[in-house]
Simulated assay, not measured.
Amino acid sequence: MTRAKKAAPRTRSSSARTQSKSVNRIGRSLRALVITAITSFGAATYLLNPHWRPQFSLDQILSYLPRPASQEQTAPIAKPTGAMVQTTFVSCPQFFPDGKLPAVPASQGLRELCFSAFAVLHSGQTKTPVFVAERLNRKTLSQAQGLQRTDKFYADARLPKAERSDLDDYKGSGFSRGHMAPAGDMSTKEAMAQSFSLANMVPQDQTHNAGPWSRIEQDTRKYVMHAAGDVYVFTGPVYAEKPKTIGFGVAIPSYIYKVVYDATTGRSWVHWQANAASTKAGPPIDYAEFVRRTGMQLLPASQH
C-alpha cells in the first residue's frame, strides 16, 4: 500500500496551463483563417461561375481542425485498480476518529493538506478534493454561530499550479464553488478564511448547492449540537469515468457525499446526492454501501 504525498510550498510553476492556452489560440486562429479563405474563395468563384456548387461543406472541412477547449470537454479518470493509498496526515491527525487514517483507491497527484479546522486529500488529476475531513462538536459549532463569512475565494499555493483550480476556472462556468467543509462549520476567523481555499471546492450545481445540499449541511450541524461528543464528517465528490470539466480541467462531479460518524455512539450514515438541479432530498445510505460504491475506507475498520 503506497502513501499519499504531503503538499509543500512550490516555487516552480508548470507550463501546462500556458501550453493549453497556446494550443487553444492556435486552434482558433487556424479555424478563423480557414473560414476566411473558404468564404473568399467561394465568393470569387460564384462571381465567375454562378452555377458552381462546392463539393464539401464548411462544417465538413472544419471538423478536421482542432477545436478550442470548452466546458463540454472530458477528462479521463482512471478506474480504481484495487491498489490502495494509505494517507498519513502527520500534521493534523486530530480530524480522524481513533487516529485511524483513511485509505483510498490509488490515483495520480494525491496530496494531503492540513488547515486549522479541516484536512483535505486533494487530487491533482481532478483538481478537486478526494475528501475533506472535519471533527465537529457542540463547542466548535457554538463558536461558529454568528461568525461572518469572508467569501474571499483563493487558489491554494501549496499545490502545484498544474494540479490546482484557479478563480478563472469557475468564471462563466455556470457552477458554484461548492464548499466541501462548509463555511458554516468554521469556528474561528482563520478557519473561515481558509475554508474559501479552492482546494476545498468542487464545481457544484447552483440549485443543488443552495437547496438540498444546504439542508444536509444544516441538519448535520443540528445533529452535532445534540451529540454527546465528537462527530467526524467526511465530504467529497464522486466522478463518472470521463467527467466533463470547467476551465482548464477541473472535473465536475456526478455525485457528492457526506459521511457522518458519531464517535460516541458508533453510528454512521452517508448522504449521497446527484450533483444536479433536479436532486431531491432522500434517505441516506449506509456506510458499507458507500465503501462498495467508492472503494474508499474513511472510517475505522469496525465500521466496515
Score class of each variant (00 low, 15 high):
Tyr239Ser: 07
Ser254Ile: 04
Pro284Val: 02
Leu110Met: 14
Ala144Met: 07
Asp151Arg: 03
Ala191Trp: 06
Thr265Phe: 05
Lys171Pro: 03
Met296Tyr: 15
Trp213Leu: 08
Phe96Lys: 01
Met296Pro: 06
Gln71His: 15
Pro93Gly: 07
Ala210Leu: 11
Gly82Ala: 07
Ser123Gly: 12
Pro80Ala: 08
Arg53Cys: 14
Ile26Glu: 08
Gly211Glu: 08
Phe41Tyr: 12
Leu298His: 00
Arg28Met: 12
Lys79Glu: 15
Ser268Val: 11
Val90Arg: 13
Gln273Asn: 11
Ala193Asn: 14
Leu65Val: 04
Asp219Phe: 04
Ala75Arg: 14
His226Ser: 15
Thr2Arg: 14
Gly211Cys: 06
Asn49Thr: 08
Lys161Asp: 05
Gly172Ala: 07
Pro66Met: 10
Ser29Thr: 12
Ala276Glu: 13
Ser187Ile: 02
Ala193Cys: 10
Thr36Arg: 12
Tyr255Asp: 14
Met186Gln: 14
Ala181Met: 01
Glu163Gly: 03
Arg67Ala: 12
Gln143Met: 10
Phe89Asp: 00
Ala157Tyr: 07
Asp168Ile: 06
Ala276Lys: 12
Leu58Pro: 03
Lys258Ala: 05
Ile26Cys: 13
Ala301Glu: 14
Pro80Tyr: 11
Phe153His: 00
Ala277Lys: 09
Gln204Glu: 10
Lys280Gly: 09
Phe175Glu: 04
Val250Gln: 09
Pro102Leu: 00
Lys79Ile: 13
Pro182Gly: 13
Leu299Pro: 02
Lys161Cys: 05
Ala7Met: 00
Val202Arg: 01
Ala251Glu: 04
Gln297Lys: 15
Gly282Leu: 05
Arg164Ile: 00
Pro300Glu: 10
Gly282Ser: 13
Leu30Val: 06
Ala240Thr: 14
Gln273Asp: 12
Ser142Tyr: 06
Arg221Lys: 08
Leu121Thr: 02
Tyr287Pro: 04
Lys139Tyr: 12
Thr150Cys: 12
Val233Met: 12
Arg221Asp: 03
Phe196Leu: 08
Ser70Gly: 15
Gln204Phe: 01
Ile26Arg: 14
Ser91Met: 05
Thr45Arg: 15
Tyr232Ser: 01
Arg111Tyr: 03
Thr294Val: 05
Ser14Phe: 11
Phe234Asn: 02
Gly146Ser: 05
Lys139Ser: 14
Ile252Thr: 01
Ala193Phe: 11
Arg292Ser: 15
Ala83Glu: 12
Pro80Met: 09
Asp219Ser: 05
Glu289Phe: 02
Tyr239Pro: 10
Leu141Pro: 00
Pro97Glu: 00
Pro283Gly: 10
Leu110Pro: 04
Asn275Gly: 06
Ser13Gln: 13
Val291Arg: 13
Met296Ala: 11
Cys92Ser: 08
Tyr223Ser: 00
Glu289Lys: 13
Thr11Val: 13
Lys139His: 14
Ala7Tyr: 02
Ser63Val: 06
